[in-house]
Nucleic acid binder design. Structure first.
Length: 433
RNA sequence: GUGGAUGUAGCUCAGUUGGCUAGAGCACCAGAUUGUGAUUCUGGGGGCCGCGGGUUCAAGUCCCGUCUUCCACCCCA
């Protein structure tokens, strides 16, 4: 019986695994450069954990099951609830700021499409316990720091930044009841995707006031952050939120990533839990869905039964990122084939035992800080074939055991690139490894 | 969940109005080549033609269903 891979999943053969490792190594390195520590949690949690913020409709969109103890469980579709749970459990003893990152494998039961799979990896970076725009700046910087290190420049990607706090203050200042905001956000989030007329119609349905529709359009079409704009003076809260956002841009410029950052009020994010700055990174051409998204979520820990602790963070999935890197030719150079430091060959099959012994000694000399690998051939072919095999496995050096080895324990070391050969006694060779 | 496209060797694909034993290139394995490799030449292994049903003397080819993949919508944590 032939069994296929499940819909929306990927098989990582060595070449694909090399790409995945390249991406994840980059995530990890950027996290560590910026002072984040790695954490992880279980791959499944109680189903109700994901219903806390998203309601029952979320159940259809995740893989859930009942275990033999009749527990209703779900494979994690995101790691933020796990993070909230873990932090809440130890909130009194964890030193602040809590700067953690993770690269969880996540599953969502959605229809696959471009840049969207049912199983993927998502880099998460969060700063918890700091109610300061500095933390937001650092999360955004870390995100850009990684993308920059992967080879993406300000002409390739932009971090579009806006403020949920400012948007909320503006809407309330314009006359919208605070308890209606959650129904308006998902509509505003669609503005970039809809033709103006359709958007206005949708918006009118939730605000029921044509003047408000115009005002909101004005606010969302403003692409420069400036306190000259008439909407800034609506209320003290708008002024405060404006100043905060302005400070954020100032910090990002100081950090040297100002070129990557633009103000974009159409970045709303559908989710209700954001409370401050929000951002998404997009490809400049606008051909792909968002590379990542994030923002401040000051109420989440409290919603998960913990204390009111502020937090800000970001999530970046591997799917869109890989498409983008690949389109820009940035993952072609990854050595997908295996490489070998030493291939041990011999001219006479009697020397196979010696080759095995020497290979083992080279491997033994490898240290954690100095890895080196060595192989011999399983096949007892002619010397020509062994050399052919050395080429095939990408060996940088081939060690040849020949008559000289029998006579005076001398090895021939052949550089596979240049073809140069030198002789060395086995003892000298092993001592200099 | 809705709609469109798709499926032939490991990969990229060809396969005539339905008609002999389903092909090519690349990849893989082996030999040419028993002390010098990566390019050359020769040979070889690989196919439930996605799966199931139907029409037909005859189906890779036509019809129906189903699954996968891709794309868009819904949703987007």
């Amino acid at each position: 019986m032939k069994i296929q891979a499940v819909k929306g999943t990927r098989d990582f053969y060595p070449p694909q695994m090399a790409v995945r490792n390249y991406i994840q190594d980059g995530w990890k390195a950027a996290s560590k450069r910026n002072g984040f520590e790695e954490y992880d949690g279980p791959i499944f949690e109680y189903l109700k954990m994901y219903q806390v913020k998203s309601g029952d409709e979320i159940v259809e969109q995740l893989f859930n099951f009942t275990d033999r103890g009749d527990r209703h469980l779900a494979i994690r579709p995101e790691i933020t609830p796990t993070l909230a749970r873990m932090v809440n459990q130890q909130i009194n003893t964890l030193p602040r700021p809590i700067k953690w990152f993770s690269m969880p494998r996540l599953c969502r039961a959605e229809r696959p499409q471009k840049g969207r799979l049912r199983e993927f990896f998502q880099w998460n970076v969060d700063v918890i316990g700091i109610d300061d725009i500095l933390a937001d700046a650092e999360v955004i910087f870390t995100t850009i720091d990684y993308l920059r290190s992967a080879g993406l420049g300000p002409d390739d990607i932009k971090a579009k930044i806006s403020s949920r706090r400012m948007l909320a203050a503006f809407l309330v200042g314009a006359g919208i009841a605070a308890d209606k905001l959650d129904t308006i956000y998902p509509v505003l989030d669609k503005k970039p995707k809809l033709p103006p007329a359709a958007f206005n119609e949708m918006l009118l349905k939730v605000v029921s006031d044509e003047n408000l529709v115009l005002k909101i359009n004005d606010f969302m079409e403003c692409d420069k952050l400036s306190d000259d704009d008439e909407w800034v003076d609506i209320s003290d809260e708008v002024v405060a939120a404006y100043k905060e956002l302005d400070d954020l841009f100032g910090l990002l410029r100081k950090m040297g990533v100002g070129d990557y950052c633009v103000y974009d009020p159409t970045i709303v994010r559908g989710l209700a839990y954001y409370t401050g700055p929000v951002f998404e990174v997009h490809d400049v051409k606008g051909e792909l869905r968002a590379v990542c998204g994030g923002g401040r979520y000051d109420n989440l820990l409290k919603d998960f039964g913990g204390p009111a602790v502020s937090a800000t963070g970001m999530g970046m999935a591997d799917a869109v990122l890989e498409i983008l890197l690949s389109e820009r030719g940035l993952i072609d150079k990854i050595p997908a084939t295996k490489s070998l430091d030493y291939f041990v060959a011999y001219t006479d099959s009697h020397l196979l035992q010696n080759a095995i012994e020497l290979t083992a000694k080279i491997r033994e000399s490898a240290k954690p800080d100095k890895t080196q690998n060595a192989e011999f051939s399983y096949k007892k072919g002619s010397f020509g074939k062994l050399l052919k095999q050395a080429s095939a496995v990408n060996a940088s050096k081939c060690i040849i055991l020949a008559q000289e080895y029998i006579d005076k324990k001398e090895l021939i070391i052949k550089d596979m690139q240049s073809g140069d050969q030198q002789s060395l006694t086995e003892r000298d060779f092993l001592e200099n490894l």
